[in-house]
Amino acid sequence: MEKWMKKAWLAISVFVVIVPVGILLTWNYEDAWGEWDSVDEGNTTWTPREYSGEAPLPDYNVPGWESKVMSSVGYWISAVIGMSMSVIFVLGISKAMELRRGRKI
């Protein structure tokens, strides 16, 4: 790995440490517009037909970790897993493309 990249990853890790800010700052806020679990319309409640499968870490948290502290831990875990997967996916896909290109030649 190039030297600047090590430094950059170190800088990024600082933001990973403070990522719970992303839920704590908005703890008492509602969901982002259009991302509600349900909508009250007068006397009726509208519910979206949700994704039928099961996301392992829904809402970037371990299911059941409800307190601010545990949600923050869940958020850290989610950030690390999600970012690692981002890196693995990009490297994996480009590797797969290379292999395919290699075979063509």
């Binding site: 992303g22 839920i23 950030a79 999600g82 981002s86 490297l91 480009s94």
Partner: peptide
């Protein structure tokens, strides 16, 4: 390629910062 990998991870991270 490693730069795209890093930037993708950064995007994942900044999207977790809800304001």
């Amino acid at each position: 390629v490693p730069v795209l990998a890093m930037l993708t991870a950064i995007s994942f991270l900044v999207m977790m910062f809800n304001w």
